Simulated scan of single mutants.
Amino acid sequence: MREREQERERGVQRAVLPFGVAEVGGLSMVPTLLHRDQVLVHWGAEVRVGDVAVLRHPLQQDLLVVKRIVERREGGWWVLGDNRDEEMSDSRTFGAVPPALVLGRVRARYRPILAGRQRSVGAVASWLLSAVRPVLADRSASRRLRAR
Rank of each mutant, 00 (worst) to 15 (best):
71 E>V: 01
17 L>C: 12
116 G>R: 04
92 R>E: 11
17 L>D: 12
82 D>A: 03
5 E>A: 15
114 L>I: 12
40 L>M: 01
3 E>Q: 13
67 K>N: 06
47 V>K: 04
1 M>R: 13
57 H>S: 15
127 W>S: 07
22 A>P: 09
129 L>C: 14
31 P>F: 03
53 A>E: 08
74 E>M: 09
148 R>G: 14
21 V>H: 08
103 L>E: 15
65 V>A: 13
52 V>M: 05
18 P>S: 08
35 H>C: 03
117 R>E: 15
77 W>C: 00
80 L>I: 01
68 R>Y: 02
102 V>P: 05
9 E>W: 08
27 L>K: 11
134 P>N: 12
41 V>R: 05
92 R>D: 12
102 V>I: 15
96 A>G: 08
11 G>L: 01
63 L>F: 08
125 A>G: 06
19 F>C: 13
50 G>H: 01
22 A>R: 13
83 N>E: 09
47 V>F: 03
126 S>G: 15
22 A>T: 12
41 V>W: 06
107 R>A: 11
89 S>Q: 14
78 W>H: 04
144 R>D: 03
40 L>Y: 00
148 R>T: 11
99 P>N: 07
56 R>S: 13
126 S>V: 02
54 V>D: 01
9 E>L: 10
90 D>A: 11
145 L>E: 12
12 V>S: 00
49 V>M: 01
53 A>G: 09
117 R>N: 14
138 D>C: 04
73 R>Y: 05
100 A>M: 10
83 N>R: 09
143 R>N: 07
39 V>G: 01
82 D>R: 01
23 E>M: 15
120 S>K: 03
11 G>P: 01
36 R>G: 01
118 Q>N: 12
134 P>K: 09
114 L>R: 15
144 R>Q: 06
24 V>A: 09
49 V>Q: 02
140 S>N: 11
10 R>G: 02
67 K>L: 10
2 R>C: 10
115 A>C: 05
54 V>M: 04
51 D>Q: 00
121 V>N: 05
122 G>M: 04
38 Q>D: 06
44 G>R: 01
